[in-house]
Design a protein around this nucleic acid. Structure first.
Lengths: 342, 342
DNA sequence: CGTGGAAGG
DNA sequence: CCTTGCACG
């Protein structure tokens, strides 16, 4: 769906009423429902900002900025495929650092405004029973992957076109308890929404991370042998020195160890994936998708590029553009948007 | 200090710079200083509302009400002593349910406006190192009693006249770890600021409470044998049926068990104390000082009278009035103010 | 329902 | 710094 005069959600679509957990895919490893009978709704829910479209220009605040700021941004200046075709599919990814806080800050207004065909969310930190009702957005099918441990990790998927199948997890219980992977199979590709394990302060969970890497690689290769793959998510690594503001001081910090960086290189190489932002912007510095909340890092652009869209080599002919929405607030990460012609 | 045209703090006083913990009283049991080198200041501190006096009419909000509301209240219509003397000492008590949150809601503007000679605070829930700098108020000496367990109980004392001695605790380690008692000795009386242990959900700590009661009683009797006593604080009990909105349904709930009510009766009797609010308003119903935050209880005045000023019998000749400031927001309790001629 | 602290990032 | 569950009331 290329941009219209007013990029509104196609309202002819039947509103999604699923939030469906069940996987009908053979790769899926459904997370167990722990239905806490829903009535344990918490106080702050009712304080969530309305996402009434009539109000989105004034009410929701994106941290210290108002949402009007992304209305003023130019979201339309987008490149074309190598053979000159305009984009018709937009895929966005955003680590929201807490779905409920993100909604209160107006996150859903971003969804309305960007109107991607697919939006991958990471770190929803929200169990099924605590999902605010506002997460159901007309025009989108929604899928959720929950961590067993409440308030950690977790993924969301918004998609205008209903996938043929949706499955959850990487088939390793240790990881699949944590809500780190959604695979959505579409007609012509797989979409993988991923939240890669963080190596932790003082690298206490680096081992776990290094166990994840080959498994994930294998999974992607397996999928790619059937259909091309789009991987979106928080890879929890800044790949090269250009992808981080302070490479020197972070060499032994989670997200920039040699092990993690090598693991990412390996993934790209062995699964034939392309980091599509870096592909079109090989030399752009200061392009980050995450800034710690501490010490005003975002204002100073002391950041990390941790969020990626990776494309199977077969999809590079369809690739138009990839943009980092660094002006969009609402989390310590910002959205990354990829444009394809399919 | 009787009411002036504008009851401002006496600015001729040297500003207090103490926040002194040391007790020079022989009854005192100083809580150990656990000086966490102060630099672990937390984020929210800087967000605290300014208490700039020029702004108190507009900026601080008391929950859903603004502080202007207490400016409009009539705080001056006060009774006299039995022999017709006007008050010259005002003693206030307020369970603030978290000093830092209370400050953000404009609590210090109340202090400025009420301008009591003595203000007793309970449930400050704030360790020494986390005390916001704004707690120092010109014209007042301040004293703090901290719980060893961070974020629980804790007391504060604001006093225009510096007490001769200030001591902390009831001389029982179990209780004195928790920041539940300050004794300030003045020339002609003792002021006791107290936060009585709560019996807990399902009365899990009723035993502890029943252990406290006789010890406290003994302490007051001991003090009273030297000088008359003013006891201010959260007694964590609604004394009679008239002191609670729903007596029937709360008979086995913390704060209205027969044991707690009897304990309070006992205290009044054996230590010869008078519940001075009830003394002048023997039949007034719906006079509460606490409302649970749940279910809009305060709006519906479904409350409890838990906060008291108790006076030694010798002081009843000096007693003028006692008011419940139920219109003052900022906590789930409201202030109680007592007027004396001394 | 609202305050605090703890763990995770 | 910020969001989450949790303990306490």
């Amino acid at each position: 769906m290329p941009p219209k005069k007013k990029s509104k959600v196609d309202s002819s679509r039947i509103p999604s009423d699923d939030g469906n957990l069940e996987s009908d895919s053979e790769t899926g490893n459904p997370i167990e429902k722990k239905s806490k009978t829903a009535n344990e709704k918490k106080s702050k829910r009712k304080k969530a900002l309305s996402t009434d479209v009539d109000n989105i220009k004034v009410t929701p605040t994106f941290q210290n900025k108002t949402s009007t700021e992304f209305h003023e941004q130019d979201f339309s200046n987008v490149s074309k495929t190598p053979d000159g075709k305009k984009w018709n599919i937009k895929v966005a990814t955003w680590n929201v650092d807490g779905l409920r806080a993100w909604i209160k800050k107006g996150g859903l207004a971003y969804l309305e405004h960007e109107s991607p065909d697919i939006l991958c969310l990471q770190e929803t930190k929200c169990s099924e029973s605590k999902l605010p009702k506002e997460v159901v957005v007309p025009g989108y099918h929604t899928y959720w992957c929950f961590s067993e441990a409440d308030g950690h990790a977790g993924l969301g998927l918004y998609t205008k076109v209903k996938p043929d199948t949706v499955s959850y997890g990487i088939r390793i219980p240790e990881f699949d308890k944590e809500g780190r992977l959604i695979i959505a199979e579409y007609n012509t590709f797989y979409l993988v929404n991923v939240y890669v394990p963080n190596s932790g302060r003082k690298l206490v969970t680096l081992d776990k991370r290094l166990k994840w890497n080959p498994k994930f690689q294998e999974l992607i290769k397996d999928l790619d042998s059937k259909k091309p793959v789009i991987v979106c998510g928080d890879m929890n690594v800044a790949h090269q020195e250009i992808d981080i503001a302070n490479p020197k001081s972070n060499k032994r910090n989670a997200g920039f160890t040699q092990e993690e960086r090598d693991g990412f290189s390996e993934l790209l190489k062995s699964a034939c994936l392309t980091d599509c932002f870096r592909h079109i912007h090989p030399d752009v510095k200061g392009a980050f998708t995450f800034w710690t909340y501490l010490a005003n890092a975002r204002k100073k652009n002391i950041g990390w590029r941790l969020d990626y869209c990776l494309l199977s080599s077969k999809l590079m002919a369809n690739f138009c553009d990839c943009c980092i929405r660094s002006e969009v607030y609402g989390s310590d990460h910002c959205p990354v948007v990829t444009f394809l012609h399919l």
